[in-house]
Nucleic acid binder design. Structure first.
Lengths: 300, 300
DNA sequence: CTGCAGTCCCTTATGTACAAAAAACCTTCA
DNA sequence: TGAAGGTTTTTTGTACATAAGGGACTGCAG
């Protein structure tokens, strides 16, 4: 049976929407709600039925209205609103980065399924799509081998990243003045400055900003393979930022300042300045990443 | 139920092995056969039981021998010895490259499953792993959109290829004299010369040689992401060579000569010569590929 | 005639079942 | 005693069932 995490999330969102309305106010049309909640009308109807059950909305057909203005109905627990596939990724990364599994060991689908509380099918599908991240390998006879987050993985990752980033940064400098990306870059610069101002409170927001920035640079000359590669980068850095707490604030401050230099170089369109700033930033990202890898990276 | 294509392939292989033995000769041990046929001993035992049923081998336990020297038993049909997943890839590429499906259209799992004669699970798993080749995209709401083999796909593919190949070629030139790769390179050069000599008869063998050569170059400085990328290259070129028959012989001859120039440049270790030969080869590969793409590549 | 809700059908996601294949363990005989 | 065959246990690949969710079609009301 398919999980109804989508329904539950949308239901919770709908509860928030109704809370904004006055008692007795009419409910927006199903089509409108569908657009607002980003789900199909089928799901909206299911939600409306559930809300009617809960007494939150009254009436029926075209005469639906808010019955209780204060959100009396309890929302679904947060955990149930996350699709199984997302939870599996999170749990798997945790399992791997926490060192519960050694590099080179076999992955047992059934065991993981039990441990994560999902069906083996979900694990199987996850492993299949996770393969592209380079952290696991398929054995010829079936089954999967864990490669692990080793320093050789980090080195190989960073090597490709440097090639792609330098290429994209150059392309960015060649963008016509009219490109909307320049505006986005300036906005992103402002976001960096903002974050730097309140770094003590929000220093964990950097991970997201980092991903946005590097994807913006790549948008100068889109290439689906580079985009795909940035998914890997984003994943690795996301979890890396989550798990490696050492000097987190300092690391992020350094990175933000490097970004700013890099952004200014891009804005100046000076090729040498861009290359220098880009290389410098990548070099320090490399150091950070390698320091946190698990092993020697000596593998077959 | 799991298919027994593995058993059938190994059974056919085993039939060939027994045909080499004299009537009455003893059969190698189960362990040895398992290694020889590249399957587990469990499968070997199943094969031996089947062969005994067919009267090809007699005796039992430690006294098994060949009963009929001439291979009297019929092997399984070729088609049944290919795992479903491999057949699906072939059929899918055919379906796509033949133009049965337009770029941008939705992929219907059930329909494909029926058309290819497999269960939907197999299609699903295939699409999941095929995603990395960049020819299909996942829709946010589930399901897949066909991107197709467009010229923008080809251009993006080639761009990455050039970056990777130049990088690896440089690394190759820096290999120590003692590296075994130099020997392999010389062997590969000989294979090219051989093929050139009998090109009229064997010109289709080039596809395989091409893949071997480029993977060898990459082996100079292994990187799992580049390796993964070469899977894409190999796939595309493999099917491209199969489907684009126009000027096939001439194209291959040109490519072989370019390879020879490229190999000689590598052997000379001259950086400028390597870069020139590499670029020249990639440029003509690019032309060939782009000429055979299906559309304008104008997509969202 | 336009936007809405009612209804129906199609497709996909996920759990479960079961056979194939692998791997581990046990027994036997030269 | 060690290499072979016999037996049992695990694990994976594939089919199938079923609910969730998307989308098309229809008739109605303003």
């Amino acid at each position: 049976m398919k999980t109804d995490a989508l329904f539950k999330r949308a239901y919770n969102d709908a509860l928030l929407l109704t809370a904004e309305l006055q008692e007795g106010e009419p409910i927006p049309s199903e089509t409108l709600l569908a657009a607002r909640l980003a789900v199909s009308r089928t799901t909206v109807r299911k939600i409306l039925a559930a809300l009617a059950d809960q007494g939150v909305v009254g009436g029926g057909g075209r005469q639906r209205f808010v019955r209780i203005a204060t959100a009396a109905a309890a929302p679904f627990p947060q955990a149930e609103t996350v699709p199984a596939s997302v939870q599996v990724e999170k749990q798997f990364m945790e399992w791997m980065l926490r060192g519960d599994a050694k590099a080179g060991s076999l992955i047992n689908e059934l065991e993981l399924a039990r441990q994560f509380g999902v069906a083996t099918t979900v694990i199987r599908e996850f492993l299949n799509s996770f393969h592209r991240f380079g952290l696991i390998e398929r054995r010829p006879s079936g089954g999967w081998v864990l490669q692990g987050f080793t320093s050789s993985f980090a080195l190989e990752l960073i090597e490709i990243r440097e090639m792609f980033e330098l290429r994209s940064a150059k392309a960015f400098a060649d963008l016509p003045e009219t490109s909307p990306l320049w505006h986005e870059l300036r906005e992103l610069r402002a976001a960096h400055v903002d974050l730097l101002g309140e770094l003590d409170a929000r220093f964990q927001d950097f991970s997201h900003l980092d991903s946005r920035f590097h994807r913006l640079v790549n948008a100068a000359a889109p290439n689906r393979f580079i985009d795909g590669f940035y998914d890997i980068i984003t994943l690795i850095f996301h979890y890396h930022y989550q798990w490696n707490k050492r000097d987190e604030r300092e690391r992020n401050e350094v990175a933000i300042r490097e970004h700013l230099t890099y952004i200014d170089a891009l804005l100046s369109r000076s090729r040498p300045a861009i290359a220098t700033a880009c290389r410098k930033h990548l070099a320090s990202a490399k150091q950070t990443l390698i320091r946190s890898t698990s092993g020697t990276g000596a593998e077959g």
